[in-house]
């Protein structure tokens, strides 16, 4: 087998290229074109909407706090704790999220429902649920790990710039105060709540066989 070689010649530079002057003028032409177009757009206020037409010719800056790009539904924002219908957190304090968390920014103190509560035994609940948003790397593992759809990152909120570290420690009440982008505190995955009348099932009192 013989090796086949293909010689690629360096493109020859013409005198015009080498004199540089012509190329400078060409370059200036390009930038001037953009300059006048951009100026005309900005002065007339008639520029493409950078949010809706991101690929259109012209000034493409999104003036962030005033204009915002709509976030994808799966965009990971600040966490929220979803509510049950009765307003209590869905979280059962299983610690799966804090286990999955690579930044170890979640602290949960589980507690148990009292003896006469219908939910006792089925679920525990977080007495404390704290996320250190400064430590959080917004990887979304906690959301993936959650078996109850109790923690979600669909608030569409950025982590705000706050002026002290303590303000970044979000507690349960704070995390439960954020609605989703759809402005709901619930989750999209309803479930039977233990103790509900609607809860189907057989037990020693009901049914049997």
């Amino acid at each position: 087998m013989t090796a086949t070689t293909k010689i690629i010649r360096k493109p020859a530079r013409t005198l015009a290229d080498q004199s540089y002057l012509l190329e400078v003028v060409k370059g200036l032409g390009v930038t001037l074109k953009h300059f006048f177009k951009g100026t005309a757009q900005l002065v007339s206020g008639n520029r493409p909407d950078p949010v809706k037409e991101p690929y259109a010719e012209g000034v493409a800056t999104i003036e962030y706090p005033d204009e915002k790009r709509p976030y994808a539904r799966r965009w990971r924002g600040v966490h929220r704790l979803t509510h049950r219908e009765d307003g209590s957190p869905r979280c059962v304090a299983c610690l799966c999220c804090s286990t999955a968390c690579p930044a170890q920014c979640i602290y949960i103190k589980p507690a148990e429902y009292p003896l006469d509560d219908a939910r006792r035994g089925y679920e525990r609940y977080p007495e404390e649920f704290v996320i250190d948003e400064l430590r959080c790397i917004f990887c979304g593992f906690c959301v993936e790990a959650c078996p109850c759809d109790a923690i979600r990152m669909d608030t569409g909120l950025h982590m705000t710039a706050l002026d002290n570290r303590a303000s970044f420690i979000f507690d349960k009440a704070m995390l439960m105060s954020f609605p989703s982008q759809d402005n709901t505190f619930l989750s999209e995955n309803p479930r039977h709540e233990p103790g509900d009348e609607s809860h189907p099932g057989i037990d020693r009192v009901r049914g049997g066989h």
Binding site: T31, F35, T39, T61
Partner: peptide
């Protein structure tokens, strides 16, 4: 401002 216009930006505002 001029460089912003040239570069399809808005510039200082």
């Amino acid at each position: 401002k001029q460089s912003a216009m040239m570069q399809d930006r808005v510039g200082p505002n």
